[in-house]
Design a protein around this nucleic acid. Sequence first.
DNA 1: ATGAAAGCGCTAACAC
DNA 2: GTGTTAGCGCTTTCAT
Lengths: 339, 339
Amino acid sequence: MGVTLHDVARVAAVSIKTVSMVVNESPRVSSQTRLRVLEAIESTGYRPNMAARSLRSGRKGVLCLAVPELTLTFFGELSGAVIKAADRAGMAVFVEQTAGDARRELELLSSPRLQLTDGLILCPLGLTTHQGHEVQANVPIVILADEHLAAPVDHVTMQSVAGARAATEHLLKLGRRNIAVIGAAPELGPARLREEGYRLALEAAGVAYQSELVIPAQHWHRQNGADATQKLLDRQLHFDGLLGLNDSLAHGAMHQLRLAGLRIPEDVAVIGFDNLDESRFSYPTLTSVDPGVDALAATAVRLLLQRIGGGPDVPSLPRHVEIDSRLMKRDSTNVLVSR
Amino acid sequence: MGVTLHDVARVAAVSIKTVSMVVNESPRVSSQTRLRVLEAIESTGYRPNMAARSLRSGRKGVLCLAVPELTLTFFGELSGAVIKAADRAGMAVFVEQTAGDARRELELLSSPRLQLTDGLILCPLGLTTHQGHEVQANVPIVILADEHLAAPVDHVTMQSVAGARAATEHLLKLGRRNIAVIGAAPELGPARLREEGYRLALEAAGVAYQSELVIPAQHWHRQNGADATQKLLDRQLHFDGLLGLNDSLAHGAMHQLRLAGLRIPEDVAVIGFDNLDESRFSYPTLTSVDPGVDALAATAVRLLLQRIGGGPDVPSLPRHVEIDSRLMKRDSTNVLVSR
DNA sequence: ATGAAAGCGCTAACAC
DNA sequence: GTGTTAGCGCTTTCAT
């Protein structure tokens, strides 16, 4: 530490400007000078000071990713994909955990921490649509989420309504008519959208909506899925299908159903949303909506980098990209017992 | 953006020095001046420029966390805990993915990216013990891992040997004598340590070590666990117990065992390592070694912050803290069929 | 208790 | 092509 451009310049017998150009790979340096500078860099062990570079250039080489929590497996997988995509573009990534809390999501926007970054990928859970206008900061923002907030920033969304609808239709096609939903929430948000898909499917099939089968869950952890399912069981409600609004809830639900001695899928067909890796290996393997994690991540990073770069071909209006989702059918909705 | 100390100073009719002291909560400012400055900060909407502060002070308020990949569920959970612990200390966290590759782990150490941070928490997988001396950088490092590398930095480790030994002893107590191991690796590393615990348990019980039951797996994903298990089955080896060197491998193994029509735990008792949340809800629920993720994370952050702060009471010699692990017994090793 | 001024290491505009 | 120079916004002596 401590070797500066000046030191290199002295060793190479050039000005610091020349060294700077070599470091930044500017083509306007003669190849012999470049070579001498490169040697000097080597011999001094020079490393550019990123803080100084940031201060001067404004570019940080860092993105911020805000997710509810990494312990929610989906966000662990999503964050991994975002970091990988950012790394390909030479960007480092800050990960912030907001706990899905609207206050913390908003706090982050004006946090000094955000100054250390060139842009933010926000996965909001607490923020509801009408708070969209509050989503603004000193850096470009891309919202990566289920829903389209009314915020004047780029959005990358998954097909929440269509995905949940396809999932529900799949259950209906299996002859299930009493389909429970786990993970509902009163506020606008992902829960509401996925619920909406459920509702639309029922409606299209002419199946009555039974509000008592729709169980809320504050957080989408496995334990909450188990708890919500226990409520269904305690209330002695009849259901032959179950839609977990995410896979973790569905896995918690399957656990609790088994404890109650119910068979999956014979007694209750279960379906989730997120297509976690875990769901390919659980027992039974879990049918799930694949939201396209890699595409979501790569797209969010791409849009954000475009905003940061700010080329002339980047439209000033907010863009909205929806990533295709796909229903992955597995044993948890297979009426025929596998094996 | 763009409001600087100068702007605030002008509004408050003081010098930038005074504003700086107020911002940094120095006590050497009269309360009336402080109040006036605070008002000016409020009215101008001033936000400190972190890049400039870093350049000047050297402190970044940022830690770097390097893990193999977040998609490995254990590292997702661990990272969440580290970020939470760092956040409590007001530090932001960069997350880097090394893919468990020794080259990338070493590259990171000399990466300019590290300059944007005050310290590094490294979870090495590829680095082996004899590369320990290469682990040095311009910032303090804490190694958070299974093993104790021969590196002159603080270590926070889990009880890999003791944990795997306890797990194996548990299987032995159930009367299992042919215990397969999945996830072995030829190189020194976590795999070797956990394998060592397995070996010690067999030895102490006077049970012969059968090398053909020890199956390697390059990466510790569920799919690799399934593949390794399929190898055991293909080779028609007899085994009545299975130790997954992590939970993901064990879940993959259980999946493959089920496909083969084997019952868990009756035919094969399965045990894992990591105690993922997933393991409390799988079928059967998975017995696992709980390495103490929260304690690992909190301790690593604490040691690192001490090094960064560099108080007089911080010993200059590298420290080594081992976090207690605990065997969580569940249905996958319950000989009596639950339910 | 407060002000003035000197840089931290770098980039970029401007000369040559 | 290369050198000179002026800051980026802040912290921190040194005066007052």
